[in-house]
Nucleic acid binder design. Structure first.
Length: 578
RNA sequence: CGGGACGUGGCUCAGUCUGGUAGAGCACAGCGUUCGGGACGCUGGGGCCGCAGGUUCAAAUCCUGCCGUCCCGACCA
């Protein structure tokens, strides 16, 4: 491709709509343009990178035994009603109506459609194992689209679904996919981690996420420095070395319960400062409401955070959210900021984190405006029959690995892939069953496996850039090589560059020829910005010494190579780009 | 949905506080000089100042409502 003909609108200025490096660079490099919030057009360069990732994903999926299909984006409401997700999925599901006033949605995922297909076509144990995938557009009406392609409303996803006769076969498919994912992300040149994960709205039992490590990631990844344990913080279990006693205490040692005035002192930090104590002496009490309209009080140490996924499990309900001001007022009798376990106006269940089980004489809110309680104690002040101790807090980097007791670290990650063992959740809801060897009907055992293909492109850029622009890993670079002609009016240089270009084309190297009649500096800046791994510069040195310059974007290395050598060994010479 | 910021040529922004002829840089077009790290000079085109109301002799500027964008939060395969 010649630059003079390529639609490549690069920007010198940083667009004001973008905050993070990868988003800015994709706009500046002319890869994407925004149509509306969370909706993007892929320009030639962006689409090429996307296609590269797609090709890798497709190849590995097919190698792993999956077969490609394509399902509709528009899906009938009936199917979603059948699975129960028409009501449960919430407002992220964009609902539309056709001219006959029939309800449809834009597919945010395809479990319903694939299960409908399979329940019609798969009747026998002989038809399995089966693994079907597609690479297609998904639509999710995100509350807050963010960071360009990172959290777009419309995006490209590879989704695969497996169908098996039993758990054992599912287990094989699951790890087969897991391994395929490892290969895919390695080939894309990403620094990533596979971590244990929560199954969220998709449901199911076992699940792993594939996280690209990056400071701008929206998830937190915990991993052990000494063993292979790694988990999303939503799920990372806290090892309990701190538990002592059973909550019941020897009352004679306890200090007297005391109420202190804390006017307008609400946050944990403020209270600790006001009372001149460490935040660890405080116990944070946060009121949650469940989807069924009940309330529960969560208690964690002042310096800890409530983990809603764990709390949800401890309570045993589908969904929870922080109670609003009115609920807080009616349950505690005070404004937000003074909640505590003692003297609640309404009787609610209390879920206390394991780490506060053994503490004595702690500080909590007094359920009274501008007041806190000192020397609160289990049993004496709090009815233990209302209290459930559980792991309901986020792990911290002071905690130890739950597997081996080693030190752990917390890092931010971008979720680019997620594999689930679904089990029979959808096959039972939609009646997808097969006949086994004995002629007995059984539900099909399912797994599902997603990759955010468009997100991979941006995550790769987030991980590979410098002040001059993108540094594409070669396998997903829109072009692998750019040949920069310093002076296009010089026919000798232009012809020499074309000669190399033709060889590159014949060698199946994706090559750009920068034949634009602009100054050399601008060409260099553009080449750096769009992140082409290797640049060959054809300039006056060709005339002086018969050499061209080979520049490697990643490390800035420069090699002078004779024109003849380049022609004979192009592939070998540019193969050191990563 | 709650909190915050913003909306002025294609892009980045000034001008708004204190109402009075719409500006700069980049980009674009023409001419000339230049030509290996985003050149320079001259000339030129391009604006419902987000939209709608209101106040005023007069509104980019003040007021009200709406729309859009971004950030934080809640939410999230």
């Amino acid at each position: 491709m010649k630059c003079s003909q390529l639609f490549l609108p690069t920007l010198k200025n940083i667009p004001s709509e973008a905050e993070i490096a990868s988003h800015r660079l994709m706009l500046r490099a002319g890869m994407i343009r925004r149509l509306a919030s969370g909706l993007y057009t892929y320009l030639p360069l962006g689409l090429r990178a996307l296609r590269k990732v797609e090709a890798i994903v497709r190849e590995e999926m097919v190698n792993a035994g999956a077969q490609e299909i394509m399902m509709p984006i528009v899906q009938p409401a009936e199917l979603w009603q059948e699975s129960g997700r028409w009501d449960r999925y919430g407002r992220e599901l964009l609902r539309i109506k056709d001219r006959h006033d029939r309800a449809f949605c834009l597919g945010p995922t395809h479990e319903e459609v694939i299960t409908d297909l399979v329940r019609r076509e798969v009747r026998s144990y002989r038809d399995m194992p089966l693994n079907l995938f597609q690479i297609h557009t998904k639509f999710r009406d995100e509350i807050r689209p963010r960071f360009g392609l990172m959290r777009a409303r419309e995006f490209v996803m590879k989704d695969a679904y497996s169908f098996d006769v039993d758990e054992e076969a599912l287990d094989r498919q699951y790890w087969n996919m897991y391994n395929a994912y490892m290969r895919i992300f390695e080939r894309c040149g990403l620094e990533f981690k596979a971590v244990k994960a929560d199954t969220g709205a998709i449901g199911g039992d076992v699940s792993h996420e594939f996280m690209v490590i990056a400071d701008t990631g929206e998830d937190t990844v915990c991993s052990c420095l000494s063993c292979s344990w790694a988990a999303n913080i939503e799920l990372a279990e806290v090892r309990n070395s701190e538990i002592s006693g059973q909550g019941a205490q020897d009352n004679s040692q306890l200090k007297e319960l005391k109420k202190v005035s804390t006017p307008d002192v609400k946050t944990i930090e403020d209270v600790a400062k006001f009372l001149c104590v460490d935040t660890k002496r405080l116990v944070k009490s946060i009121l949650f409401s469940t989807s069924s309209g009940e309330h529960a009080l969560a208690m964690v140490r002042g310096d800890h955070e409530v983990n809603e996924v764990k709390l949800k499990r401890a309570i045993g309900c589908d969904d929870i959210f922080m109670a609003d001001e009115n609920v807080v007022l009616s349950v505690t009798g005070a404004d937000v900021g003074f909640a505590g376990p003692v003297g609640l106006k309404e009787s609610v269940r209390i879920f206390a984190d394991n780490s506060i089980r053994g503490v004595k004489d702690f500080i909590t809110g007094a359920n009274e405006k501008d007041a806190h309680l000192l020397n609160v104690n289990w049993q004496r002040d709090i009815d233990l029959s209302m209290v459930t101790f559980a792991d309901i807090r986020n792990i911290t980097d002071h905690d130890l690995c739950p597997e081996c007791g080693g030190r752990i670290e917390l890092k931010k990650g971008i979720e680019v892939g997620h594999v689930f063992k679904l089990g029979t959740k959808y096959s039972e809801a939609l009646g997808a069953a097969y006949l086994d060897k004995d002629g007995k009907e059984r539900p099909i055992i399912m797994g599902c496996y997603g990759i955010g293909v468009s997100r991979v492109v941006q995550a790769a850029i987030e991980q590979n850039n410098d002040k001059n622009g993108i540094i594409f890993p070669t396998p997903i670079a829109p072009f692998e090589l750019i040949i920069t002609v310093i002076n296009t009016k010089d026919k000798v240089l232009l012809l020499a560059a074309k000669e190399i270009y033709d060889i590159a084309e014949q060698s199946n190297i994706d090559c750009l020829l920068d034949d634009r009649n602009i100054r050399a500096g601008a060409k260099f800046k553009d080449a750096d910005l769009i992140g082409i791994p290797v640049r060959i510069t054809v300039g006056k040195r060709l005339k002086d010494s018969g050499e061209v310059e080979v520049f490697f974007r990643r490390n800035g290395a420069v090699k002078m190579v004779s024109f003849d050598d380049i022609k004979e060994n192009l592939l070998r010479i540019i193969s050191f780009s990563d």
